[in-house]
Design a protein around this nucleic acid. Structure first.
Lengths: 182, 182
DNA sequence: GTGCAAGCGGACACGGTGTCCACTTATGGG
DNA sequence: CCCATAAGTGGACACCGTGTCCGCTTGCAC
């Protein structure tokens, strides 16, 4: 059971972190900043979240769960029922939305390889792997990662900064999905 | 004009850095390590290379130039003359070879977004963009980045660590190339 | 009200980065 | 051949972020 003050502090930490990530960009926010903004000590912060990535993960968790639920049990084409190529295209489109809303705040903290170690990546990977296998393409193991690569938060923010619109990125991904799983 | 001792130190720095990157993995090597191994002071090191990424870049430069030359003026299918889909597949294959030889040593230093800021990425991007445009696909701007994403060094080392072989990765990329630019 | 464990927070040590400046040395002109 | 000079050198230093540790506080159950 969690003590009341602990719960309150957890909420304050997440709230403060979300605000700071949004204002400064996740990589520019230090653990110290977060602790100070939340009005807690460093020790308290580290007790729950050993690093920035785990805070980002906690902030993302809810949004990811919603999408995961839709993939497993939602309506086609996102959920089961549609042909693999269309399910992949729908997944891409949903992920672009998710990135558009949250990449600049949060995903920036998942720098480099740590991205692949998260549970979320495992889920996306399993989903795409199933689609790829259903479509009967060669080397499904490798192809699943390959098809997830364009969703790297780093790449997305880079593309957005270069002036590409979400629509245009989605268009490219839709073409890719249809072509790769035909 | 560069003084003789400066040239000698530059060579020693690059040699020491290459050895350390190979032995310890690029992210685990500090600037101090490199300076000590090269037998120069920190100031000397920083004078030429302000960070690890610039050292990695210098080490990669030669290999990248060779491939770039082949893309511009080499034999088909890598060079001009073959259909876009086959040129892209050949490019993927060559990049996998390059990653296999050097990713674990060097590309690890190009962490996160800095990858996109390098001249090399610009070159790959222009090349793929030309192929994509020639193939007449929609949203060529976005698609060029999308098709380069699977070559991220982070992803490559992750796939290799998970047991995927270069052959298998190349197979997935070949399928992707043929499918995307048909 | 009281005992106590969970929670708290700031002080601390560590390690890496990047800067700065007094010293050294190669180089080219006299 | 030697000297003036500017490029080059190297290590000391200050700064910053991280993560840990431990004495104190506080909520909770009885």
């Amino acid at each position: 059971m969690e003590r009341a003050d602990a719960a309150r502090n957890r909420a304050r930490i997440l709230e403060a972190a979300a605000a700071l990530f949004a204002a400064e960009g996740a990589p520019n926010v230090t653990m110290d900043d977060i602790a100070r903004a939340a009005g807690v000590g460093r020790g308290t912060l580290y007790r729950r979240y050993p690093d920035r990535a785990s805070i980002a993960l906690a902030l993302l968790d809810e949004h990811e769960r919603v999408l995961q639920e839709k993939l497993l049990r939602g309506e086609p084409p996102l959920g089961p029922g549609a042909p693999p190529a269309e399910r992949l295209a729908a997944f891409y489109s949903a992920m672009v939305e998710l990135l558009e809303d949250h990449a600049h705040l949060v995903l920036g903290a998942e720098t480099g390889r740590s991205r692949f170690e998260t549970g979320a990546y495992g889920f996306w990977r399993a989903h795409v792997h199933a689609l790829v296998t259903a479509a009967g393409t060669p080397a499904p193991d490798a192809l699943a990662d390959t098809l997830l690569a364009p969703l790297a938060p780093d790449l997305y923010t880079y593309q957005r900064d270069r002036g590409l619109t979400p629509d245009r990125i989605t268009a490219a991904l839709t073409h890719l999905a249809k072509a790769a799983l035909s």
